[in-house]
Computed example of a mutant assay.
Amino acid sequence: MNFELYGFGPALLAGAWMTIKLALCSLALGLVLGLAGALAKTSPYRVLRWLGDAYSTMVRGVPELLWVLLIYYGSVSFVRELGEAIGYPELELSAFSAGVIALGLCFGAYATEVFRGALLAIPRGHREAGLALGLSRPRILFRLVLPQMWRIAIPGLGNLFMILMKDTALVSVVGLNEVMRSAQVAVTSTKQPFTFFMVAACIYLSLTVLSMLALHFFEKRANRGFVRSAA
């Protein structure tokens, strides 16, 4: 079994770094969208609930690959016109930006349901106790609700992040040089598909293991001081 990389080692490492950046930026965007969606779906206002339902249903109903293509190609003319309007005709949406938006949008839709379940798992009495103490609703949200919500939501969010890490391969279709794109370029040049696809698989597996270790750390940290029921 030949694992000679034919000089493509640095390109694969650069692709791995691009995958990590893409995943982390998409995670940041997805967490914001997911939290906003969950708060909307649990809101007492019907319009916000409708918007939250529409976001999660519409985004989850379309494959991630289609979102990447729609956002990348669909925004080309819009960004160009915007650039001309503000005096920057060379303005364009990069493949990385399109990937972050698409993957963040999809992650946020699934995270909406994770956050929603975590919010509903918090006893209503905690909010009522905060009101009885004279806390404002924003303070109750940030000091009582969100810290408890994170502890409940972390396992589900961790699973979604592992899926997100592998979904970064979809952005290779618009030319982003992440792991899969780098591996495909190496395969085209060397005609050694097994070698480079196996290396790509090992890179993804390594990133997954690191993500699991980070998830374990965050779970342990979030559960500090929490005493589980013996029942």
Score class of each variant (00 low, 15 high):
residue 58 M to L: 14
residue 145 V to P: 03
residue 101 I to D: 02
residue 120 L to P: 01
residue 151 R to G: 14
residue 160 L to C: 10
residue 101 I to C: 03
residue 129 A to M: 07
residue 194 F to R: 07
residue 70 L to M: 12
residue 185 V to I: 15
residue 146 L to A: 05
residue 58 M to R: 02
residue 66 L to H: 10
residue 95 A to F: 05
residue 138 P to H: 13
residue 103 L to Q: 01
residue 109 A to P: 03
residue 86 I to R: 08
residue 173 V to R: 09
residue 196 F to D: 04
residue 65 L to F: 12
residue 151 R to C: 11
residue 128 E to S: 10
residue 196 F to M: 10
residue 111 A to H: 07
residue 175 G to W: 06
residue 195 T to C: 10
residue 100 V to H: 04
residue 135 L to M: 15
residue 118 A to E: 03
residue 180 M to W: 08
residue 113 E to C: 08
residue 121 A to E: 07
residue 173 V to P: 04
residue 181 R to F: 09
residue 202 C to T: 11
residue 201 A to G: 15
residue 136 S to H: 13
residue 202 C to V: 15
residue 147 P to L: 12
residue 66 L to K: 08
residue 87 G to F: 02
residue 153 A to K: 00
residue 192 Q to Y: 06
residue 133 L to Y: 11
residue 155 P to S: 14
residue 59 V to Q: 03
residue 157 L to V: 07
residue 117 G to N: 09
residue 185 V to W: 02
residue 90 E to H: 11
residue 194 F to I: 14
residue 116 R to Q: 07
residue 161 F to L: 14
residue 119 L to D: 01
residue 68 V to D: 06
residue 93 L to V: 09
residue 144 L to W: 08
residue 197 F to D: 07
residue 92 E to G: 10
residue 200 A to Y: 09
residue 69 L to D: 04
residue 128 E to H: 07
residue 75 S to E: 04
residue 142 F to T: 15
residue 184 Q to W: 08
residue 100 V to Y: 00
residue 195 T to S: 08
residue 77 S to C: 01
residue 157 L to I: 08
residue 83 G to M: 08
residue 106 C to R: 06
residue 120 L to T: 05
residue 69 L to W: 07
residue 92 E to P: 00
residue 143 R to A: 15
residue 60 R to Y: 00
residue 65 L to A: 11
residue 123 P to W: 07
residue 197 F to Q: 09
residue 168 T to F: 05
residue 69 L to P: 04
residue 159 N to E: 13
residue 64 E to T: 13
residue 130 G to L: 10
residue 61 G to D: 01
residue 101 I to S: 01
residue 108 G to K: 00
residue 156 G to I: 11
residue 76 V to N: 01
residue 173 V to F: 12
residue 191 K to A: 15
residue 68 V to I: 14
residue 148 Q to Y: 06
residue 177 N to S: 14
residue 76 V to K: 11
residue 83 G to E: 02
residue 149 M to E: 04
residue 187 V to W: 05
residue 155 P to G: 12
residue 120 L to W: 01
residue 61 G to E: 03
residue 128 E to T: 09
residue 95 A to I: 00
residue 109 A to E: 03
residue 78 F to K: 04
residue 165 M to C: 12
residue 192 Q to A: 15
residue 72 Y to K: 00
residue 186 A to I: 06
residue 90 E to C: 01
residue 138 P to A: 12
residue 202 C to M: 14
residue 106 C to I: 03
residue 150 W to Y: 14
residue 188 T to S: 15
residue 130 G to K: 07
residue 168 T to V: 03
residue 172 S to Q: 12
residue 118 A to Y: 03
residue 101 I to Q: 04
residue 108 G to T: 04
residue 123 P to A: 13
residue 57 T to A: 11
residue 62 V to M: 11
residue 127 R to K: 10
residue 86 I to M: 13
residue 124 R to P: 06
residue 68 V to N: 03
residue 102 A to W: 00
residue 150 W to H: 02
residue 189 S to C: 05
residue 170 L to S: 06
residue 142 F to A: 13
residue 106 C to F: 12
residue 75 S to P: 05
residue 184 Q to V: 12
residue 147 P to C: 12
residue 72 Y to C: 02
residue 94 S to W: 02
residue 198 M to A: 15
residue 189 S to T: 13
residue 166 K to W: 09
